[in-house]
Every structure is written in structure tokens, then in C-alpha cells.
Design a protein around this nucleic acid. Structure first.
Lengths: 134, 134
DNA sequence: TCCTAAATAGGACTTATTCTTATTTAAGTT
DNA sequence: AACTTAAATAAGAATAAGTCCTATTTAGGA
């Protein structure tokens, strides 16, 4: 929790209960959509309005504290910003797993052949996780 | 246009004017969001309702004739389904470019190290296109 | 403890999407 | 070419998602 206070302070944002609860919730779940955040935080702060949630999500994204996670055929999810990584999505159980892998050579190939200067990438791999395999 | 009639027929879907206009529009633009599709098709068929557009987009996706294109910080776009490819998004001019590149070795690395069985991937590279570079 | 800019609550408002039903149409059959 | 019918559409109601407004509250520095 303290780490989020520091992050907020570093961005001149006040550490309100709502904000901390939102960050804590997203951190706990790893990847979560807006309704699930609302349900979770609402249990702790029943007075919190949806407007507050939406506003905070948007603010935290623009301060690069949160990041969108866009998965195929799913509602948008959110995660705490961390070291660049890709997402593995299990088609069976819908679990989302972070995975750290070097993508430089792929980016280089693309840069060389496309003329694009690539700064960052968003990669989702769709498949079946260990647990769901027979 | 004939090719779309064939695709629809192969899926037992009727070739309505609206459907063909939607497919033609998406094909022309390459990547386009729902409002832009509406504006374009509406010019040709002012009687078309939004419900028809939404219904068709969803149906065409479930028949794998269309695919979602989810880009960072943007409204969802749609494209005609084609050979697997990745998307290059220019941060400057917002242009979306299709790019064909071999991703097997990356997928293999991930499979080996994660235990996931990967079936397909969604890759977006964010950067600056040729034309927007100085 | 005081002060003030920032943040929240709550509801109004707007935009996005889906649902419902009467009407129309594509396309196969005669 | 007319007939038939299941599929598709139009139009608007209904619902869901997201933003805006403003009076009140609060975090956090002095």
C-alpha cells in the first residue's frame, strides 16, 4: 500500500481511500475489468460513485500508473504498469498470465522491413494454459 | 463485391445491400471503427439503422468474416479477416498498417518457457511510420 | 488547527449497444 | 415471372456504459 502512496505522491496525486482501494484491487487481481473493480471497491467503500472510478482509471492511465489490457473478445481490463511484458490468454479458463520475453529481434526484423520506427509493442498470445491441457 | 457475396453464401448469410455495403466499406478503409462505418454506409443507405450495423458486425465476427482490431488508446476497429498479420500503429498520424512477419520462433520460445500451447497471436507495434519520420 | 486546492458523491446527462416487433427482402421453388 | 418463407431490416424503446456538473468533503501542507 505504501508503494502506491509513493507513486501517487510522485505524480502530485492525493492518496485518497478510493484511489488506494482501486490500485490495491487491480494489484491483487493482476488483470481486471471496470465492473469487477467497482464490485470489489464498493464492498469496502459503498459510497464510492462510478464517476469516481471512471475518473480515477482515466487519470491513472494518463499518469502511466495503470495500463489498459485489450484482449480478443473480452471487455477491456486494467493492470498496474510494470516492466514490459506480454499476455498469455487461456481460451479455456480465460486466465491472463504475464510473461516476460525478449522481443528485440522481432522488433528489429520489423523495423528493417517496414520502415517503421518501433517504440513499444502490445502482444497477446492466445492458447491453452498448462492447467487446462489434458 | 462478388467475393463478398460468395463468402456470405458460403456461410448461409443473405447478401443484403446493407451487409455488402458494410463489408465494402471496411475493405476500402482497411481498418475502421463503428461510427466511421455508419457514416460511410449511411450516405449510401440513409435508412439503415444502427441496430442493423451492430448486429451485422457481431454476426460477421462470429462467422470469422470480420476481425476486431484492438489498438492502444483507441476505439475498437474492424477489418476483413485475412492471412495472419500484425499491426503497425503510427503514434503520429494514427495510420494502421498491416505487416506480414514470421512469428513462429517467438511463439516457440514462449511455448517452451511458459507451458502454454499457443494457437494464435495478436501483435501491435507502436511507433512512427516512414512518412512521419523527419 | 487552519487553509485550500484537489477529490468525491450523487444524480443528471450523453453516448453506446441491444432488444422488440412489424415490415420488407433475398433467394430458392414452381 | 410470380410464389413462398425464413432471414434480415427499420425504427424506436430499453438498457448499459461513460461523462459532466456542482455542492460537499478531504488530504496534506503551513
Amino acid at each position: 500500500m505504501e508503494r502506491f502512496k509513493d507513486v501517487l505522491k510522485a505524480n502530485n496525486l492525493k492518496s485518497t481511500h478510493q484511489r488506494l482501494a482501486i490500485l490495491d484491487c487491480i494489484d491483487t487481481y493482476g488483470h481486471i475489468d471496470i465492473d469487477a473493480i467497482y464490485d470489489t471497491v464498493f464492498k469496502k467503500y459503498p459510497s464510492m460513485s462510478k464517476a469516481t472510478l471512471y475518473r480515477n482509471i482515466n487519470d491513472l492511465i494518463s499518469f502511466h500508473i495503470l495500463e489498459e489490457v485489450k484482449l480478443p473478445n473480452q471487455k477491456q481490463q486494467y493492470e498496474i504498469r510494470k516492466i514490459p511484458h506480454i499476455h498469455l490468454l487461456c481460451k479455456n479458463c480465460a486466465k491472463v498470465e504475464d510473461f516476460f520475453v525478449e522481443t528485440h529481434s522481432l522488433m528489429e526484423t520489423i523495423t528493417l522491413n517496414s520502415g517503421f520506427t518501433i517504440s513499444n509493442s502490445f502482444i497477446v498470445m492466445n492458447g491453452t494454459c498448462k492447467e487446462c491441457k489434458v
